[in-house]
Design a protein around this nucleic acid. Sequence first.
DNA 1: AATGCACTCAACCGCACATCT
DNA 2: CAGATGTGCGGTTGAGTGCAT
Length: 375
Amino acid sequence: MGRSPCCDNRGLKRGPWSAEEDEALLNYINKNNGHGSWRSLPKLAGLLRCGKSCRLRWTNYLRPDIKRGPFTKDEEKLIIQLHGILGNRWAAIASQLPGRTDNEIKNLWNTHLKKRLLLMGIDPQTHKPVDSNCLTSTAPASLATRHMAQWESARLEAEARLSRESSLFSQPLEKSEPDYFLRLWNSEVGEAFRNLTTVDKSACPSPMSQASSSTKCGSVSAVTTEVGNTLTGSSTMAGDQNEDMEDKICQTNTEDVGHNICQTNTEDVGYKICQINTEDLEYKSCQTNTEDMGYKIFQSNTEDVEYKPWQLNTEDVMAGSDSSCSNDLEDSSDTALQLLLNFPINNDMSFLEDNVDDYATTPARWTPNSFICPL
DNA sequence: AATGCACTCAACCGCACATCT
DNA sequence: CAGATGTGCGGTTGAGTGCAT
């Protein structure tokens, strides 16, 4: 059906913004407590710009919460990690870096980080060593896979908690009830993870997945199925989220769960993955562990990286919840994302190896209560 | 001093999606 | 339900700047 251009550029100014234009835009937005319709804004603000240009100028430069100045090492590290999860979804990445814009992050990536990774022999798109592509079929593990495993665990925990709560509380929770993992699961990051799960499975079939499924896989899958069924009939969630969550959980392919978790069973595969030297953000060179056909992608200076143990950092999760349970989505996402980023990168996947059967019934080292905001 | 090159980053473009009519 | 409109997003461009020759 063809689309008309968002704005007619004829007679409109283009190029860099002058201080006067900035002031006019700022004044208008301040006076009106917001921008309103971007299309009508230029006319109302007396600007010879198209609405799109105004929006861009505001979101990328004039917004009061913009943090200017060079990126810190931590920010760069976070961007690299998030890029490994989310890919070129700059807006999603930017949402995890307060005060930074997607444009800024995109520029940083294209001008610095991408080149840096390439120089180190790391494919900036896949975050895998360039010369290890041949290994991916025999060693399916990747940073993404590790994140997948963590996500899957987080999701299972959330499901388990929902199931538990549904039996404990007959009335629906308040809509404002913080629900870190459910929210995160429904967030951009969760979405990315779900996509990742699908893509990764098809792109990189695990040797394990081709073998008959193991007991361990079966255990985990069973839990998912059970929880999913429980949830279908539960009424613990409020409003649209409830429906969404039910859908997503019920859609869960339990075979995939087993598949993915088994893929990352170090007992079977044996590998160590990404470790980052945060001090200089240098990825150290790829090493292949030929002994067990696994491989180490990166090595890090573990002194530099504070890896939290593979359990919820209760302090983080509960931060702010003492005073109130009304953390907004950003807060909870941040917290949960922190969890994700605190993944025990320098450990292998022993958390899965350790009593996976136990894990299925009792999420060992995952204190269920630590997910729950005090009522 | 003049020129060329590489780099950075603000801004633009076009597409996709959500919402409105 | 279809088309129109508004907005957000990611890819790309090009002006400005610094440095090397």
